[in-house]
Design a binder for these strands. Structure first.
Lengths: 157, 157, 157, 157
DNA sequence: TTTT
DNA sequence: TTTT
């Protein structure tokens, strides 16, 4: 029986993507994403609850992540839950859950354009990976930006 | 048989929300939201396709929309498809589809915080409704911000 | 700015799919899907509310729909909202909203396998289109069944 | 910044729900759900991949699960990812991911009604928990069935 | 027009 | 009518 396994997230990166270029030619990016939920407890106090997700992106997606995503970037993600299982040294069954990203979209870049005093968005398409930080946010997607789907050929340029 | 009717949108408001305070005490906000899809046609030319959605928000949600959403605001929306049907003067069956919003989240305001040199985000929580415009974007959600669910009691302050 | 336009439905077909084989070789199936919501009103009475959706499927998807879906079939649908706009004879702006299906999954057929006394599921892959009816439900997807994504090559056999 | 953390699953229970009635009066049900994905590998061979999800349901939801869900039941689930973190005896950081169910819907029960020769669905509302098995599927939801949302008061009877 |  |  066919099933459905779908995850939808909106959150911010906890750190810059970790990207590995494999010998096979594949590229994989590991991204940690925080989704924060705010609510009021029974006493009316505001409570924040943050869940951290381990995302896995491949190939064209990973390259876009490498170039445009930085610590703090806000993204919309669509993916699926994917777990690895193994036995540890003690012989215990272990399981690690990851989100395999199927597509993602950068959010909020419009606001950066208006607000960034140093004109950071002008280096779109050539985001300086050596000095990513909050004050100098990652470049917005270039004009061909859009959803980044799975596959090799979806680099937006 | 129970069904599922769910809509998820990320897009930008086409204009300021239209808010009506009904005699019953209910508040309703009508919002037009653009979702833009970009792809390359067979000739490799970039094509943009925009779909316009008619959103309907009620009560607490509508009040938050009135106070914080402006033309151009980027939001995440979860809702359901809801149609009205009637007969027009010619006796033809007519149908109008709307998205009944169940919750929404403002996007991108974090970036405004860091980047806005004029301190626009400083008026968070007291968005000046009389002078909303692009240069002075709608205030970001106040510190109690979060998902705006359905119901009367979810004003974020 | 990239957007997101996603619809998720679970419901039942109101009638058999209407399938047209175009001269271009494309195939299009129009399907009406009911999603029913049940709740209790303020008096504790059970109320049912049914929303009807106009679905549009193309090519491989449409062929699967033609062969396996029937009035009453329960499906999971993922798609996007897509509207056509035009002017009617009176010069009024008109808009028709459809759900462009991106993938769908047949539901509940597993149970048919176990329960169907006449062995209806044995004719999977050769569903008799001339005599679809309730007593003889549409065949379940064949063993290669699964999600039916967009594209020409996804016929499950 | 508000986030979004949403999971949508359609799958089958791997075993009967495990339900605990806590001293506090709360009820919790643990459910394992399989979502199966089928595709063809590069050689054209059909491959099935099953992902197992650990679901957590509370209170009214858990009671409905206890009464109506059985090994093999097909359900639609909407929830969120929720992880527990701790240190094991070796001092290693450990993390367990669960799906906190926000609502679920039973699928496919219509087909059982028609197909089950032994009239199993006649015990709807009083599913015999002592002898659940595949040949005798769990009762379909009673006529007041529908989405099972979170909360105490949503038992469908 | 479906389904329960 | 938005956004890039």
């Amino acid at each position: 029986m066919a099933g459905v396994n779908k995850v939808i997230l909106v959150g911010n990166l906890g750190r810059d993507p970790e990207v590995r270029h494999l010998e096979s030619g594949s590229v994989v990016a590991n991204v940690t994403l925080a989704t924060t939920e705010a609510y009021k407890d029974r006493n009316g106090n505001r409570v924040e609850n943050t869940e951290w997700h381990d995302l896995e992106m491949w190939d064209g997606q990973a390259k876009v992540a490498e170039q445009y995503l930085r610590k703090g970037s806000q993204i919309f993600v669509e993916g699926k839950i994917k777990s690895d299982t193994w036995q540890d040294e003690q012989g215990n069954n272990r399981k690690k859950v990851r989100i395999r990203v199927l597509s993602f979209t950068m959010l909020g870049s419009r606001n950066m354009d208006g607000g960034a005093p140093g004109g950071n968005s002008s280096n779109a398409g050539q985001a300086d990976q050596s000095t990513p930080n909050k004050a100098q946010p990652a470049a917005s997607m270039p004009s061909s930006g859009g959803n980044i789907d799975d596959g090799e050929d979806d680099l937006p340029f």
